[in-house]
Design a protein around this nucleic acid. Sequence first.
DNA 1: TATATAATTTAGACAAATCTAAAAATATGT
DNA 2: ACATATTTTTAGATTTGTCTAAATTATATA
Lengths: 219, 219
Amino acid sequence: MTHSEENYIKAIFHLGSQGEEVISTNAVAERMETKPSSVTDMMKKLSEKGLVHYKRYQGVSLTALGTKTALSIIRKHRLWEVFLVEKLDFTWDEVHEIAEQLEHIESEKLIDKLDELLSFPKFDPHGDPIPGKNGEFIERDNQLLSQIPIGSSAICVGVKDSSAVFLRFLDKNNIALGNKMKIVEKEEFDNSLRIYIDQRELNLSQQIASNLYVKMIKL
Amino acid sequence: MTHSEENYIKAIFHLGSQGEEVISTNAVAERMETKPSSVTDMMKKLSEKGLVHYKRYQGVSLTALGTKTALSIIRKHRLWEVFLVEKLDFTWDEVHEIAEQLEHIESEKLIDKLDELLSFPKFDPHGDPIPGKNGEFIERDNQLLSQIPIGSSAICVGVKDSSAVFLRFLDKNNIALGNKMKIVEKEEFDNSLRIYIDQRELNLSQQIASNLYVKMIKL
DNA sequence: TATATAATTTAGACAAATCTAAAAATATGT
DNA sequence: ACATATTTTTAGATTTGTCTAAATTATATA
Ligand SMILES: [Mn+2]
Ligand SMILES: [Mn+2]
Ligand SMILES: [Mn+2]
Ligand SMILES: [Mn+2]
């Protein structure tokens, strides 16, 4: 498989996990930052290789083989991200770009040895689950901070938007995975939240709150 | 730079270190396992980018920029090889192929951090010197075992042929970098050598002896 | 349901990296 | 020095991944 083919497979997988089962040509084009006509061409090729189900005008979805392939690429991507943070002291906002390159390195043994070196991590630096050799992985609690009731306490377990800008915003406000927070109040006007985190009081806009995954806890 | 361009630059560099200053189109083609016509096309492109000196029918050589580029790729290649052996327990016959892929990953910071993780190694698993950030590197003793006088003692410091077949042959005969050996006799008929290594007596064909780099030592 | 709008595909083009076959330049040997 | 052999380049084709513009199909709306 070429890098480009792998990137399309990954894009379809991610769009698929985000809700719909069948993905539109335009959705793939937007995510890949290419033109819809290029997507059509690629879908024909991936279809011939048995990686996607595709009928013209009907959208696209991954076959079992396509899903397996996607999980393997995502496994590589996320293991490399852990490596960069744990072994090379990169920050969580720096690793994605490099992992985009490293995910295409071909060597089953390499990735298994890397997994071992990192002590078989289950989550990447952004809290995303790392698929195992056979594609199995732990579903993370996918509750958003914006969705939990006022008064509850929760632990930060992941980010929905893992862009460098958002991650650096979190750093600046000392919000990290594992932090415990309590929702004090929701402002009716703009749905912003007032929370306690790490002995501090913080105001988070609705946009921030809807990009933080949390796990509710009892006190 | 594309992977292909980088591989051509590296090939020209290696051919250049092997003796001649100006490299022929055919030599590049043979090393890259491509056709001479493909080389001509690529030389025009690299020439326009200022990486090689090229005039038609006159062969090719690296510019200062080309040499710098080559050294950077070789630095990455060899650091990754050390990583694979030191951190992931690969054997020296397994690493070259994977390093061929990893050498094209783009990130200055990545490679500097890797260098640090590995404690700034000066040689790769095959005894080849690792260029530093600024292209400087330690010249290894490039004396071949086949060239040193009978009766002398030497330490094995590198391999000229680093193909997996040759490396596994060395493993099988317990010949490793750092081993001390003494040349006992050279057979006139086929130039094979009888040596002492590690308390053992061993017979090495001329072909073997002319692919092992050694450093002479006094007893 | 007819029509307008949006999504998707097709047709044709292009750049990159390769190839084969033929032409041109260079090197070699007597 | 001349003929021959070798090397190198050119010309034209192919594959991959992309694009634009036009045609087609599907969807939404009045
Ligand atoms: Mn990532
Ligand atoms: Mn990618
Ligand atoms: Mn190597
Ligand atoms: Mn390479």
